[in-house]
Design a protein around this nucleic acid. Structure first.
Lengths: 376, 376
DNA sequence: CGCAGTAATGCAAGCGCGTGCAAGGTGTCA
DNA sequence: TGACACCTTGCACGCGCTTGCATTACTGCG
């Protein structure tokens, strides 16, 4: 440190205790004061938000009155509230939700944990959730967990840091210990389509029992006999359940299923899967794709690389009912994710008072019949 | 209120001041105490987050030491930090970002204002932004402004309430007064593809000067002469700029453009626009669609309802380069939104220190040449 | 007029954290 | 050994808000 600079502490020490330095110390204090005043008059830079204090002054009421004016159901005279609101409007005052959250122990934030956010299904779900949350007076904070799975844990940690009222996990599987931590902290947790055996949170899953059955039936009616299942290598429980269910249902009808797995769950994987399945000696005449995106890639490859007609040469079924499945070029038969129901159920549970024990919800994914499967 | 119930205030009043009631009051106090203790021992319900206080006790240090342990660059001995971290881990402590934000006047939250979140382009942008923000140590809060335009203002108000460090507006146009309010509050503001004349914020737009020129040139080389522009009725400045630019560029070549506008900016609108344009007496042989989604709808209608071949009978160009544009069924020639650049630029500006004056950024949207336009 | 009940209001404590300041500890040099 | 610089640490205050409690004002009733 520069030897010429003295700090006030030194000034007040006995060593320096003579008249000249006392005056210097006084000057220092004065300087500080001036600086502070200047800073107050000319905000000059950062974040000068107006506080309830100032609104109170302007409205001629106490600070608590301001607080009550912005609290639904508080005991305050209409006239007072009006005055406060007027002053607030004039000053551009907005309640500081950070401070409010600190006091109330309820931030109003709900954390959405999601990967592959660019995907049609995911983004549709996010859209529905954000809307429902806003309707319920909450706000969505979103944590992108693309890449490593360990990020889900980081995401939940973020949720805890911001004292989120709840977290909704759309992707990946959080570690059990972290789930416990969330629950212990009174944070509500919703797991969508990740059928883990976690305790405490709400689990929303699709009822995929009937699904496989429906597909097999549809394929049989269409006269198909060489069944295939196009899966990704993601290995998510819900994705695997579709495969297992389909294979089982087919076997019940005495049919084998050719299963192929490749890459992530997307359009490109669908194309690769088609290349693999369609170059087999026994070329399938019906394929159930784990996802609409996979199905669309599959269809494109089948048509443009193998010159197959759908559904004449090949029947295809997908899963999710993303908007693209309904496009004329595809007209894909599929199962509809009940997106709105999922969002509604999740938000309803978050807002409900019965501080839930572990609860599991199974929703139906209705069969959407289009033209990628020959009709009977 | 039940007349049998007395509250402590009444008990202490002179009227009740006799021995029996004094004892009763004491009992009441004791009861309160017991209740508090019980509640402390058996959390029983809500939000019992562990605080720095408890970590400090467990680690045998002061609370400030805990605070410093979690503050980068603070003056703390490695050994002390280790002890703190250990205790924190054991207790499941996480810094309360609400309180930290309150102190530091910097919440770490960035507010994303967006509508049509389910759309491929929008969701891709959100994905890129959330990722970049996380890399920069921020977290994204997302406000869905579907429906009314007035919601954008509500969104910015939310941003202010949560003392967001910044807001990024992807949809709609905020009211000038609100923008001022944000700026006045030191909140940074990024407007993406909404070329308003706002002061203060960063504006990111595409350089669409050359765009129209390229399309016209491409169409002319392909031998097209009957040009059309398929627009939505959204009327966003950037969308209108494309229309105006295209019409002007065509006129420069001595060609008229048939302009049709319909509905929102989506696939379905594209189909309707095709129906309208393709039933005209002078059927266009080239169409520039304001958006990829519109283009894809247009292509599907042209093919399946009018049995046209693309690009033989009709050349199509879109805008955005959403993933679906690259799908085999479409192979759409289009302009690529520089999504990553947009996100990078936005986040970089947010994080930069030079508390910016108004700044405007123009990015290039490279032409992506595919097969929906005949080559020369 | 006195009394009680109710509505409105201010006071002050405290939510969990960061940080300036002063005190304590350690090492270095004369 | 003392002077000095430097690194750590604890104390205490305040960020902006909510809320329990006590006080005051007001109303209706006997």
């Amino acid at each position: 440190m520069d030897r010429n600079v003295v700090n006030p502490g030194q000034m007040k020490s006995r060593k320096f205790n003579n008249l000249g330095l006392i005056k210097l110390a006084q000057a220092w204090d004065l300087l500080q004061e001036v600086c502070k005043a200047v800073q107050e008059w000319f905000p000059m830079s950062d974040k000068i938000f107006v506080s309830a204090e100032e609104v109170a002054r302007k409205a001629g009421v106490s600070r608590s009155a301001v607080s009550r004016a912005f609290t639904a159901g508080a005991s305050i005279a209409p006239e007072t509230r009006r005055k406060v609101m007027e002053a607030a409007e004039a000053l551009g005052y907005h309640v500081n939700h950070l401070a409010r959250g600190l006091m109330r122990n309820e931030s109003g934030i709900v954390c959405l944990v999601v990967s592959d956010l660019g995907t049609p299904y995911r983004s549709a779900l996010i859209k529905a959730l954000t809307q429902q949350l806003q309707n319920a007076g909450k706000i969505a904070m979103i944590v992108n967990t693309d890449r490593s799975d360990e990020r889900v844990d980081m995401a939940l940690r973020q949720a805890i840091r911001y004292r989120a009222d709840a977290s909704i996990v759309l992707s990946g599987m959080p570690d059990k210990s972290l789930v416990d931590l969330c629950v212990r902290n009174g944070q509500r947790l919703v797991l969508i389509n990740r059928d883990d055996e976690h305790q405490g949170p709400l689990r929303i899953n699709l009822d995929e029992e009937g699904t496989a059955q429906s597909v097999v039936t549809a394929f049989l009616r269409a006269g198909c006999r060489r069944l295939a299942f196009a899966n990704s290598e993601a290995g998510t429980p819900s994705l695997m359940a579709r495969e297992v269910g389909f294979v089982a249902a087919a076997r019940e009808q005495g049919l084998d299923v050719t299963v192929e797995r490749f890459g992530p769950t997307g359009y490109e994987s669908g194309k690769v899967l088609a290349q693999r399945l369609m170059t087999r000696r026994e070329r399938p005449d019906a394929v159930f794709c784990v996802t609409d995106l996979v199905a669309l890639g599959f269809m494109d490859a089948a048509r443009h690389q193998f010159s197959l007609s759908i559904p004449q040469d090949l029947c295809v079924v997908g899963f999710d009912d993303i908007p693209q499945a309904a496009w004329n070029s595809y007209d894909l038969t599929t199962f509809a994710q009940p997106i709105d129901e999922i969002a509604t159920a999740a938000v309803a549970w978050l807002m409900s008072d019965d501080v839930g024990q572990s609860q599991s919800l199974r929703l139906n994914a209705p069969f959407v019949w289009r033209r990628s499967v020959r009709s009977a």
